[in-house]
Design a protein around this nucleic acid. Structure first.
Lengths: 143, 143
DNA sequence: AGATAGTTATTGCATTTTGCAATAACTTAT
DNA sequence: ATAAGTTATTGCAAAATGCAATAACTATCT
């Protein structure tokens, strides 16, 4: 297990020690906001993560307790990752990043989630989180 | 000016393209939650950022419009950085990171800001932001 | 005036991380 | 049997980071 050495006892520093990079939060995003749950799902996301980086980040997320990992019952060569409470508690961060990114990316116009979020952010966060909690222990429904 | 190429049109991806690393948000944290405003202030933060990295990140923050840069009137060899609205809009992200980090860093017990935040987060965020906006255009009061 | 300290960088070099392409090992589908 | 799907691993080049030394300038002190 890779050791993460903390730079200070600041909670922000602690957070960034774990997921302060360009990829980790995108994997969590996939699991939070899409139905993505497997290696290949993440590999096919539009940003185009390299497979060696993906392996590395998934191991970190697993070792640090952000996700559980279990074999798919429908496909024995496939693993399903599921968010733990530790990761579900990051939903507010992700939502805030969406809100900020939508506002300051001039090349893009506001979309689906934002309008919903901005109207009642606290409610939207709670809905997403409750929905994610239902997935705990669930397998795929279909291929 | 360093060019940041975007990996996708996802707002989270856009955000991480700019500040998805281990240092940038710590500099913003210093400006948001402490009275830190200068190169040496950031250099002396507990995490121990290297001066070449700090130069690089401050340039990015400046070029991307997160901070303004002006000479100190009390010390001509010193520059004062001030957060713009673009950065002040990241206060919610930073507060959420504090909240999450406080909760999951087992080596640390809850402190000052958290208790205040958890009770009424929306209010706390607004207060911090309003306070930061007052600093716009302000010089140092004393050395 | 000269020495010391403060402030913002730059440089060089070793180490680490990332990016990219090929490929492996195994399972599933045709 | 062959091809396709899935999760990795490997090798190598490129980029980013970490660290120490030092530069250039300003401020302070005696």
């Amino acid at each position: 297990m890779k050791i993460i050495n903390s730079r200070s006892d600041c909670p922000i520093s602690y957070s960034l020690d774990i997921f302060g990079d360009k990829w980790t939060l995108l994997i969590l995003r996939d699991m939070m906001l899409s139905e993505k749950r497997s290696f290949s799902d993440f590999l096919n996301s539009p940003e185009g993560i390299a497979s060696n980086i993906l392996v590395d980040r998934l191991n970190i997320l697993h070792n640090q307790g952000f996700v559980t990992k279990e074999a798919s019952l429908l496909n024995k060569s496939k693993f399903l990752y599921t968010l733990t409470e530790k990761a579900i508690d990051l939903v507010p961060v992700v939502i805030d990043l969406i809100e900020w990114g939508e506002k300051y990316n001039s090349k893009r116009e506001p979309k689906s989630i934002l309008t919903k979020v901005v109207k009642n952010k606290a409610r939207a966060i709670k809905e997403i989180q409750e929905n994610l909690r239902k997935k705990t222990g669930q397998q795929e429904v279909s291929k």
